[in-house]
Simulated assay, not measured.
Amino acid sequence: MLHTFLANNREALISRCRIKVAHRPTRDASVQQLENGVPLFLGQLINTLRIEQSDRPADSVVVSGSAGGNAGRSEIGEAAAQHGHELLRLGYTVDQVVHDYGDLCQAITDLAHERDASFSIDEFRTLNRCLDNAIADAVTEFSYQRDFNLATEFAREEGERIGSFAHELRNFLHTANLAFAAAKAGNLPLFGATGAVLERSLAGLGKLIDHSIEDARIPAGDSAKWTLFSLSDFINETKHAANLAAQLRGCGFVVTSVDPHLAVSGNRDLLYSALGNLLQNAFKFTRPNTEVTLNAYAVADKILIEVKDYGGGLPAGKAEAMFLPFTQFGTDKSGLGLGLSIARRSVELNDGILSVRDIPGVGCVFTITLARHALMKK
């Protein structure tokens, strides 16, 4: 009988299946596979065949399900669904799910031929029914979980995209309000430095809205062109807006001199956004009566832009976690926790690196690293 043959050769069949798995590219037998895959299915198959040889053969559907793919719970179906779920979690494809059960079928056929074992037609029908139901349930669960994961990831990315847009929108609006309040309080003309900050903020709002419209029309790809621009001018442009934020926070703001011949090649708007987010983060967390320092200089073939604060340092082991979306560690939860995530993404889109160095008990230094370029001397 087939169930006796399977029971007597259970370990040999499992071993053959493991060998087949090991020979497939990028696939190893996992703990989950050993628990919910071939070994468990083989035991359920043996149990089904035994029941069908008893005086209550109809009870086998509880273990293996009925023929024809009719809906209904069964032990094989539940185990196969778990197996499909685990393979998806491990990063495998749907064809690899099917292969696992095909391996067992092939192993049974090969071993039966080698041992010259013969089985009845009804037993082979039961074997095929169990395999068919197991494959169907494993593939169904695999597909469901894959679609669920894709939908979840899409929702997460959409939430992050909307959050990033709102965050940047608020940044520009906040700077514009600061400039307007300063101009109003001091009765300042709009053609001066404060007026320039207001103008750049309004222009930034316009570009942000324009880019969001472009993204809606063209879902993928960044059409913005890179330009070569002066590092000194870029830092000075940032300086005026940052001075207003420093005054609001009641802290000092120090900007070191920049070599006028240094240049950066990239998307100026994205880099302006990145540096602006770093400065806002520094002003937000630096301690009262301290200062934030902005330093830009060249080392070998790199340009480094550093923002140093006196916020007391970072939580132990949390340096990289700070760059995750919607992550906040301080007591001030007024933001969305997207500033550093946006800054890193903006820098990386310019082939740069954004890193952080902790100074325990003092503060931290965020560094933008970009390729070094030079302006033509006039």
Rank of each mutant, 00 (worst) to 15 (best):
G91R: 13
G330D: 12
A316Y: 04
N149D: 14
L173H: 10
N295P: 03
L6W: 01
F119R: 11
Q280Y: 01
T175V: 09
A179R: 03
F41C: 04
L208N: 07
L90F: 06
T367V: 05
G84Q: 09
V94M: 14
F119G: 08
N289Q: 09
N133P: 08
H174T: 11
E320S: 15
R89S: 12
L131I: 15
Q82A: 10
N133T: 10
N8Y: 01
S346N: 08
E291Q: 11
I135A: 10
F366I: 01
T93K: 14
K284V: 02
G313D: 09
G84E: 09
N289L: 03
L6N: 04
T140L: 06
L338S: 03
G37Y: 00
S66N: 11
D132Q: 09
I46W: 01
A374M: 05
F124M: 13
G195C: 05
F154S: 15
G43K: 06
S30T: 15
E214S: 15
G102K: 07
I368A: 00
R170W: 01
G69D: 03
H240T: 10
V63D: 01
E306W: 00
G317Y: 02
S273R: 05
N171P: 01
F366Y: 12
V292T: 04
R27Y: 05
V38R: 00
S257C: 02
P219Q: 15
V62E: 10
A166C: 04
Y297S: 09
S143L: 08
C251H: 08
E78K: 14
F326M: 14
A300P: 04
S120K: 12
A203R: 14
R344G: 08
L270D: 01
H23E: 15
F326E: 11
P189D: 09
I46Y: 02
T327Q: 07
N267C: 08
C364R: 06
A220M: 07
F283D: 01
A81F: 06
N236R: 09
I359A: 10
N243E: 13
V347K: 00
L6F: 01
P260T: 06
G330H: 10
L198Y: 07
G335N: 04
H261Y: 06
V347Q: 01
V365C: 10
A134W: 00
N133Q: 08
S64Q: 11
T140F: 03
T4Q: 11
A371M: 03
R10Y: 05
S265V: 06
L34T: 14
L205F: 04
L208M: 09
S15E: 08
R372H: 05
D28W: 13
T140D: 08
